[in-house]
Write a protein that binds this DNA or RNA. Structure first.
Lengths: 192, 192
DNA sequence: GTCTATAGGCAGATAGAC
DNA sequence: GTCTATCTGCCTATAGAC
């Protein structure tokens, strides 16, 4: 109930932002502490397993947050085409703000995923489960909109790849362009 | 004409593989030298600007290589649907081999792109141009298959995102699954 | 072209006082 | 819960000999 976030929360929050933005290897623990404003000595108290634990929790945190956002976005319209277009627009709006960096907190899971895939099995698994979770939400929306299991499966997999790839390209270009383009293909893609 | 690669080539080769596989920040110059088998003292002779120069050249190298492969793959079939499906299959075949890691040399440009987007403008630009180059090849194939400029533009952008995203998911899962799924959607996606 | 030696910094992690 | 001090190791980069 306290208004101020606990040190643990502040550290995890800063870590989540930095990991998703700069990546795992480019982010130092010292920077996390600094940006969090938390006491310097508290990191290893709250996260005894250090950097890896911090990253796992960061992945899980934004996995849950984004999942909630996906659910919310897809529920705005009953029509699946409109719903997914709304969702993609909502992602692309991040790039419109003047300072997109601070808003990109959770979005680019792909960075952490590729960085760790061959290097750290725990982190790789956390990322894999995250993508699975998000894809399942797409699947459910399609199922409840009357798509057959086969179609829903295929389309949800395609949407997962398409959105993740478009985010990659948007970050590279520092522009929402690509997400806006793919949005025009959603009606065709969602053919029953 | 010499059979042995020059030291410069060997270093660049090793750097290209490691950067694309583990990423920019997780790859040390010492490891590059070690894997290349090149003389230890030669790195800064051939690449006076150190790690950044090495990375720019690595990006350009695999940009060119993949571009050649894309051209080749898309030329196998005249029918664009078959051509793109062949191309995607050819990418996915990388994941089938017993030791996929060594074959992933150039594929995951997205890793380098996201790692450097907010951190190093030179590298970011090199990645942006690479994506542009590959996308243009998709566009040309569609144009020469009779697609309108608008359609070709939209579809090529979609294909770029879709393929890049599917690669991300395949690497995360260490499986070719996702690329195979999206391949089934190509006919629908290429609707004129 | 290649080598050694080394600077100088920062990384992640631990021990022990408070 | 938090702090300071410190260890160990790796990193990029440079200087100067061969």
């Amino acid at each position: 109930m306290s208004n101020k976030k606990s040190s643990r929360e502040k550290i995890l929050e800063a870590a989540t932002e930095l990991f998703h933005l700069k990546g795992y290897h480019a982010t130092g623990l010292s920077q996390i502490i600094q940006e969090s404003g938390a006491p310097k000595g508290s990191l290893y108290y709250h996260f005894p397993n250090g950097k890896e634990q911090l990253a796992v929790e960061a992945i899980n945190l934004s996995a849950t947050r984004i999942a909630a956002e996906i659910k919310q976005n897809l529920a705005v319209y009953e029509d699946p085409v409109k719903a997914f277009q709304y969702h993609i627009e909502s992602i692309s709006s991040i790039f419109h703000s003047i300072e997109p960096i601070s808003n990109l907190k959770n979005v680019p899971m792909g960075l952490l995923a590729m960085e760790t895939a061959f290097v750290n099995e725990n982190l790789r698994q956390a990322c894999e489960e995250t993508f699975e979770l998000w894809g399942n939400l797409y699947f459910e929306k399609l199922r409840s909109s009357g798509y057959s299991e086969e179609r829903a499966f295929l389309i949800s997999k395609t949407l997962s790849a398409l959105i993740e790839g478009a985010i990659t390209l948007c970050i590279t270009k520092k522009s929402s362009e690509h997400l806006i383009h793919i949005n025009k293909m959603i009606p065709l893609l969602l053919t029953k």
